[in-house]
Design a protein around this nucleic acid. Structure first.
Lengths: 219, 219
DNA sequence: ATGCGTTTCAAACGTTTGTTTGGGAGGCAC
DNA sequence: GTGCCTCCCAAACAAACGTTTGAAACGCAT
C-alpha cells in the first residue's frame, strides 16, 4: 500500500490510473471495464492497480471520492452561506447552488460533468452494497442539510411529498445528464441545432422547479 | 435452435430461464449475472441457455421482448383510441395512458413493474450498442406517435423544449421506479407511513405534469 | 419396435477475469 | 558502499466466464 495522492511533481501512476478509469467506467460500466483495459490505456503495469488501491472495488470508490469530495465541500460551503441569510432562499437559488457545485469542481473540463453524472447513474443502478453504504456514510450529512433548506424554500409541499419529488428530480438529473452527449447529438440531427451543456442545465432547472412546485395530487 | 415459446403445457425450460433471468438481471445487472447463476437457480442445465436462445445477448433481448411487446401493443391501441377523439387530449390523460399500459401488462404481479423499470434503467445505462439498436428498431414508431400526441396536448411548449422535457420525465420515471422498493422502505422508516406503488405513481404523474408544463427558461 | 427430431445433460473447451508473486530499479540515509 | 523503503515490472496464479461438444433420454409418428 502507498499514499493515494501523486507526489505533486509530474503526473504520476495513481493519477493516470484514476483519469483513465473514470473515462472507461463511464463509457462501459464497472464490471465491463477490466483492469487490463485501464492499465494498458493508462500506460502503467497491470499490478499497479492492486498495489496502489488494493482492489478493483477500492479503485471504484477512489474514482468517486475524487469527484464527490470537492463537490460536497463546495456544496457544504454554499449551504452555510445560505443558512446565514436566513429565510430568503428561493427554490431556484437552491437548485442553482447545486448545479454550481457540480460545475465548479470540473475546472476547465466541461465534459467531465457528463462523466460525473454518468458515474452517479451507474453507481445508483449497479451498486449492490459497498457503494451504497459508502455514499450514505460519506455524504449523507450534506444531503440532509440540503433537504432542510429545500423544506424552507418550498413550505407548501409537505415533507413526505418533498421526499418523493427530490428523488424524481434526482432521477431526471442523473438520467439526462448521464446521457447528455448522445441526447445533444440527437438534437443536432433532428432539429439542426447545437445545444450547449449550459442550455441543457437551464432547461433542466426549469423542469425541476416546475415539478417540485407542481400541484399536489388529489389523494 | 428451437421454438422460442413454451409449448403451452406446463412451465417449460424456456419460461423458467426467462423468469429467473429477469429477476437476477434486475437485481445485479447484466454483466454481473452469470449464466451459471441463472441456470442453477432456474433448475435447468447450463447449456440450455445457448441451446434455446443462442447466446447471452440474445437472452437479454428475449427478456426485454417479453416485457415490451405487450406494453407497446397496449400503448399502440390506446393511442389510436385517443387519436380518434381528435383534439381533446390533456397532458394528464396522456401520462395516465402511459402508466396504464405499463401496469396492464403485469397481470397480478405488481412487483414486476419495478423489475420492468429497473431493467429499462439498466438498458439505458449499460446498453453499449445492441440493445440501443434493438429498442429503436422495434419500438421507435410507437414512441414517435406518443410524442405527436404530446405536442398536441401541450402546444405552448416548443418541439425542442419538449424533446428535452420528455427525457427529463423519462429519467425521473425510470430512475425512481427502478428503485421503488428501497425508496418505499426509507419512507416507511423515516415517516412511519406505508406508501403504495399506486400512490407513488400518482405523485410521479403530478411531478411530471408540473415539469412538462413549467415556465420556459429565460433563454 | 424402429427411426427421427428435439431436448437435456455432464464435461470440457479456450478466454478472460482479478489478484499475487518475486525480483529488480531508483532514491535517500547513514 | 550498505541497508531500507517505495515503486515498477513480467510472469504466473486460480477462479469464473460464455460457449461447445457428444452422448444419453425423451416424445412421437410409422
Amino acid at each position: 500500500m502507498a499514499g493515494t495522492a501523486g507526489r505533486g511533481a509530474e503526473r504520476g501512476t495513481v493519477d493516470r490510473i484514476l483519469d483513465t478509469a473514470e473515462v472507461l467506467f463511464a463509457q462501459k460500466g464497472f464490471a465491463e471495464t477490466s483492469l487490463r483495459a485501464i492499465t494498458s490505456k493508462a500506460g502503467v503495469n497491470l499490478a499497479a492497480v492492486n498495489y496502489h488501491f488494493g482492489s478493483k472495488e477500492a479503485l471504484i470508490q477512489a474514482v468517486f471520492e475524487r469527484f464527490l469530495d470537492p463537490f460536497c465541500a463546495r456544496l457544504d460551503g454554499l449551504l452555510t452561506e445560505l443558512e446565514s441569510n436566513s429565510g430568503s432562499v428561493t427554490l431556484e437559488r437552491l437548485l442553482a447552488t447545486l448545479s454550481q457545485s457540480a460545475l465548479a469542481v470540473q475546472k476547465g473540463e466541461p465534459h467531465r460533468v457528463a462523466i460525473f453524472f454518468r458515474l452517479s447513474g451507474l453507481a445508483y443502478s449497479q451498486a449492490q452494497g459497498h457503494l451504497r453504504r459508502f455514499f450514505r456514510e460519506h455524504y449523507g450529512e450534506v444531503f440532509r442539510r440540503f433537504l432542510e433548506q429545500l423544506a424552507l424554500a418550498v413550505p407548501e409541499v409537505p415533507p413526505m411529498e418533498m421526499f418523493w419529488r427530490v428523488h424524481f428530480a434526482l432521477g431526471a438529473t442523473i438520467f439526462t445528464l448521464s446521457g447528455m452527449d448522445p441526447l445533444r447529438a440527437i438534437c443536432r440531427s433532428d432539429f439542426a441545432v447545437e445545444v450547449l451543456p449550459q442550455q441543457v442545465e437551464e432547461r433542466l432547472l426549469a423542469f425541476l422547479a416546475g415539478g417540485i412546485r407542481a400541484q399536489l395530487p388529489a389523494s
